[in-house]
């Protein structure tokens, strides 16, 4: 192979890695997962909306500026100091998340849902959780993809939703751009795992402090008073396995023979962490984000299988 051909080959590999046509079923599965979790998060804000976000809440006025030193004027929650306005904006956020879940113009409702999510974060940074950071990540990347092409409200026939929602598909060469967002999401996930792994290497995790989480103790109290759930050596082993998994995830996931093995491990790990630590929504979202590593063909096959189980006929949409 001449030097020129080698260069051409390298460029083709590089561009093929970033620009590819993703499976629309794959994008839709991820959209439904992320959309459902976002909607769930927004709905659960309702009972504590005034306590967390109103001026009369526990963090009103001056203390809010202490919590969020970066002033952000775009948070609709703070435009009008009224409880009614608070509920109005909250209602809009729920509607927006619902539209995203249903695949209704995700390019519009995706960023809008992201805006509302950031508005809550700036509305009271004192209640921001790890899952909120993941939601921002997922919405930002998925909004750049045609994730509403299938498994969406657009699939309903025109008598219900005429013309407006049935956009013409774009030219096929543009569909490769949507692969870029997916690839960026995958790489971002790898970085996130690596950074989490570095954090886990600290004393807190490796010495087993994680097991002193009030929830784990509660669980332990419920199950067996004064006894450990599993032998201490196993707990230490678990702590090291979790840290090593986080560190090496970003490498092993790109090696074809290991991909599904690592994915399976990730799902298993998040199920254990989710159930054991009762952090189910966070770990569920991590599982959904991990689905971005599925092969497009396999995602189509999963969709076909689900459709057949439900006695429906599903055809992958074309460009």
């Amino acid at each position: 192979m001449s030097r020129r051909e080698a260069l051409q080959h390298a460029i083709d590999l590089w561009m093929g890695f970033w620009f590819f046509r993703p499976s629309y079923a794959h994008l839709a599965i991820m959209r439904v997962g992320v959309g459902a979790i976002v909607l769930y998060l927004f709905l659960l804000q309702t009972p504590d909306l005034e306590a967390h976000y109103a001026v009369t809440g526990w963090a009103g006025g001056e203390s809010l500026s202490f919590l969020d030193r970066m002033a952000w004027a775009f948070s609709p929650l703070h435009w009008v100091q009224s409880t009614l306005w608070l509920y109005f904006v909250h209602g809009l956020a729920i509607l927006s998340a619902m539209a995203f879940l249903l695949g209704l113009l995700p390019i519009v409702f995706g960023p809008l849902t992201l805006l509302f999510d950031l508005s809550y974060a700036h509305g009271n940074p004192g209640v921001v959780l790890s899952i909120d950071a993941l939601v921002v990540l997922a919405l930002a990347y998925l909004s750049l993809t045609p994730c509403g092409r299938t498994l969406s409200l657009r699939d309903l026939r025109p008598p219900l939703l005429p013309g407006l929602l049935h956009r013409r598909p774009g030219p096929s060469e543009w569909s490769r751009w949507s692969g870029l967002a997916m690839r960026a999401l995958q790489i971002h996930l790898c970085i996130l795992y690596f950074q989490s792994g570095v954090h886990l290497l600290g004393e807190d995790w490796l010495s087993g402090t994680m097991l002193a989480a009030p929830r784990v103790l509660d669980l332990e109290t419920m199950l067996a008073q004064g006894r450990t759930l599993v032998p201490p050596d196993w707990l230490h082993l678990l702590a090291y396995v979790v840290a090593l998994f986080h560190l090496y995830f970003g490498v092993l996931i790109w090696l074809p023979p290991f991909r599904y093995l690592v994915l399976g491990l990730a799902v298993g790990l998040h199920v254990v962490l989710g159930l054991g630590w009762q952090l189910i929504p966070f770990n569920l979202l991590m599982i959904v984000l991990n689905l971005s590593f599925l092969h497009g063909v396999h995602a189509d096959a999963i969709m076909q299988g689900i459709a057949e189980l439900m006695g429906l006929r599903w055809l992958p949409p074309e460009d």
């Binding site: 969020d68 921002v136 930002a140 995790w205 402090t209």
Partner: peptide
């Protein structure tokens, strides 16, 4: 915002989350 949220640490997750 992809790597930071108000009240979050360097990877966007809440600060002092392990301090209990």
């Amino acid at each position: 915002y992809l790597t930071w949220l108000p009240g979050g640490n360097a990877i966007g997750f809440p600060q002092d989350a392990t301090r209990h």
